[in-house]
């Protein structure tokens, strides 16, 4: 059994075997369910979470399907991405992630050893974050009907109060880290250097994949002052800011967004704007101006040493929903919402 066969997804013995080998045997007993609930300790149609011993007020749920080509990249793989991505979505809604469901769809013929690395990475993230993997699904698609692998994760979290993103007039925007690393790496691999994996390792670009759970104490402390929180994945920070401006009817002015030198150089090489590249381990917040400085300092104390203020939210009568960027030289331009595919340009 060196590669994936259609029978592995047929619900029979082979599937039971592979699930037990790939997943069940690797999740700690304690993390196979939420305390006093039901999970993959007794694989059933669904999982059960007892609410009676939980004091928090909201259940936060987030689900996302992950496809990434190639599945392995510097800094992680589709497995770590799938776990981290949904955890971060829950954290950015103000929730503490407690349980997860996963759904893995894999192409017939996919090498088993690679699949195992992917699943291990996913389980590893859940384990480190103390998130119970309480259920899931596993399917195999005939060769050619799927490009290698697709993972969907659903993460459940608990929050005292959910963060609903409506930035307020006067808010200050804070970013936790450099942005665009993940998008740059994936673009790098797709633009013809996928076969140069060894060089990439020595290169200075790698995905920024990391769970944002370390931000939870900060979110807890400033809960009433945070008016929006988001991790800028697809569409990059430009996407998040434009959505916020549009949804709140305010105007956003940004400047000096932290972008790693390597990412900037690489983006310049392809003629793309790093403001549109995805991050998988950064967060943007819109917080009340009064607490902004303190918020940034606390964030830095939590280990996000690159955290900084990047802009302001302003009320505008005529220009609701726009994002304005102050450029390096002090000029102004509009920062447009992302459109279409990002393709490199010649000119």
């Amino acid at each position: 059994m060196k590669f994936i066969k259609l029978s592995h997804g047929s619900g029979g013995v082979e599937m039971g075997d592979i699930l037990s080998k790939l997943v069940f045997s690797k999740v700690d007993e304690k993390l196979k369910k939420v305390e006093n609930g039901v999970g993959i300790d007794l694989p059933d149609d669904g999982a059960a979470i007892p609410l009676k011993n939980i004091t928090n007020d909201y259940i936060i749920l987030s689900t996302d399907a992950y496809t990434v080509n190639p599945p392995f990249f510097p800094g992680g793989n589709i497995g770590s991405l799938a776990a981290t991505g949904s955890i971060n979505d829950v954290v950015m809604t103000g929730g503490k992630p407690i349980a997860a469901l996963d759904s893995i769809v894999v192409e017939e013929g996919y090498p088993l050893d690679q699949l195992e690395i992917i699943v291990d990475s996913m389980i590893d993230v859940f384990k480190k974050e103390g998130v119970a993997l309480i259920g899931g699904d596993f399917k195999v698609m005939p060769k050619g009907n799927l490009d290698k692998i697709l993972i969907t994760t659903t993460v459940l979290g608990l929050a005292k109060k959910p963060i609903v993103d409506i930035p307020k007039d006067g808010d200050v925007l804070v970013v936790s880290d450099f942005v665009g690393d993940h998008g740059a790496v994936i673009m790098l691999l797709q633009m013809g250097v996928a076969d140069k994996a060894s060089e990439l390792k020595s290169g200075r670009l790698s995905s920024d994949i990391k769970p944002l759970t370390r931000l939870l104490p900060l979110i807890d402390r400033f809960l009433d002052e945070i008016n929006a929180a988001r991790d800028p994945t697809r569409g990059g920070i430009a996407g998040v800011l434009n959505e916020w401006a549009k949804n709140s009817g305010n105007l956003i002015v940004v400047e000096d967004v932290p972008i790693r030198d390597e990412v900037r150089r690489y983006a310049e090489m392809l003629g793309i704007d790093p403001m549109y590249l995805a991050s998988e381990g950064a967060a943007v917040f819109s917080v009340s101006a009064e607490v902004a400085e303190e918020f940034v300092e606390d964030m830095r104390d939590l280990g996000f040493e690159n955290a900084k203020i990047i802009g302001k939210v302003k009320k505008s009568e005529k220009y609701k929903g726009f994002v304005l960027k102050k450029t390096e030289i002090g000029g102004f331009r509009l920062l447009e919402p992302p459109r279409g595919e990002i393709v490199p340009r010649i000119c």
Partner: peptide, 26 residues
């Protein structure tokens, strides 16, 4: 991406940005 119309569409014309700056007193 460097076609004039595309650039104007994405980044806005001068008059436009000027107007916003005026309104926000930036």
């Amino acid at each position: 991406v460097e076609g004039t119309c595309s650039i104007w569409a994405r980044f806005g014309a001068k008059e436009f940005t000027d107007d916003i700056l005026e309104e926000l007193k930036l």
